[in-house]
């Protein structure tokens, strides 16, 4: 079981409130991603749940019992760190067995669990190596192995893929997702990369300056961002945000339209000049300098034969326009 509830959790370092007030429930078995720009408090929040930092006020419950003042080891959670935090002086086997040894488990039982974890993670042939002799992806798997053997109530991941190269990141992303599907254990995953958040999460928690901006499934956030911050943060390339007179026409302080929701063709309301264009084959990204509005990013399917300086008209797709009020919140 792994239901985690945060009630009015607050964390300050000195006079600085890193997390002013957070309420959040993470259901058993969910894959929850905390995402936000650096310094938004997502790692601090994870460390509060782990027990590596004290809350300044509020309550943390794990499976209904108060864990606010329990030391990390007593919370039944396992953590995978950004640097993997493997013990360099121990073999892979000893690394994975370390939490079991600390729990006082018998050697035979330890070995059985280590073998099992190694099989799941394809580490069987590496058990006698030191972490220094492994590749980045293998180290990552050892760190995960050390977490699984404990059979924790929940896994905590702190930006675990940020030290890997792009190709490895994609495959590890998939491995972790598959692991979640087979273990069905609660996972809390911190990242600044919204692509990781979108592809892995059951539920995304968008954080900004220590506050939760929005909680929801990836597609909810994509289709119905609750405010300008989420609108700009989720989705790649970024949503175009337009203010001023153009927004006023729609009775909003700001309007937003995603690059993929702008059509090129005759009869659109916006006219502009093509600037930079990036041809990816499957898609073409255009920067268009639109009269009276500014630069818009446009994503067109396939190959588009427009060149620098061409004049085009653009039309936002019907119903794909997001309207935000002066306070940044979405308007119905």
């Amino acid at each position: 079981m792994g239901k985690i509830t945060l009630k009015h959790v607050n964390k300050s370092f000195g006079d600085v409130a890193v997390i002013p007030d957070i309420n959040l429930t993470i259901e058993n078995g969910e894959f929850v991603v905390f995402v936000g720009p650096s310094g938004c408090g997502k790692s601090t929040l994870l460390r509060l749940i782990a027990g590596l930092e004290d809350v300044s006020a509020g309550r943390i419950e794990i499976d209904g019992t108060d864990a606010t003042h329990l030391p990390p080891a007593k919370r039944g959670l396992a953590m995978v760190f950004q640097s993997y935090a493997l013990y360099p002086h121990m073999s892979v086997r000893k690394n994975i067995a370390f939490p079991l040894k600390m729990a006082g488990m018998s050697e035979a039982e330890q070995e059985k669990k280590v073998q099992n974890a190694a099989r799941i993670l394809n580490l069987t042939n590496y058990l006698d190596r030191r972490p220094g002799q492994l590749s980045g992806g293998q180290r990552q798997r050892v760190a995960i192995g050390r977490a699984i053997v404990r059979e924790p109530a929940a896994f905590l991941f702190d930006e675990p893929l940020s030290n890997l190269d792009a190709a490895l990141r994609v495959s590890m992303r998939q491995e972790i997702t598959e692991l979640h599907q087979s273990l069905k254990t609660t996972m809390i995953y911190v990242t600044h990369d919204q692509v990781e958040a979108m592809t892995m999460a059951d539920k995304i928690v968008v954080l900004n300056a220590g506050n939760i901006e929005q909680v929801g499934s990836p597609l909810e956030l994509y289709h119905h961002p609750a405010n300008v911050f989420v609108a700009g943060f989720i989705g790649s390339p970024k949503m175009n945000l337009i203010g001023g007179a153009e927004a006023a026409k729609h009775n909003a302080a700001t309007i937003g339209v995603r690059p993929e929701h702008i059509d090129i063709g005759e009869g659109g309301p916006w006219t502009g000049t093509v600037g930079l264009s990036e041809h990816l084959g499957s898609d073409t990204f255009l920067k268009v300098e639109v009269d009276n509005i500014g630069t818009l990013n446009v994503r067109a399917s396939g190959e588009v034969t427009l060149r620098h300086g061409d004049r085009i008209t653009l039309a936002p797709q019907a119903g794909r326009l997001h309207r935000f009020g002066a306070d940044g919140k979405a308007l119905a």
Binding site: L77, F81, M102
Partner: peptide
Amino acid sequence: IPAEILEAARMDGAGLFKEIVYVLTPM
């Protein structure tokens, strides 16, 4: 020595004494 490694030991259930004996000192 990265603090994360000692934190990992703490998450793994090592108390202060074990953290120093099994992780910090050998490293």
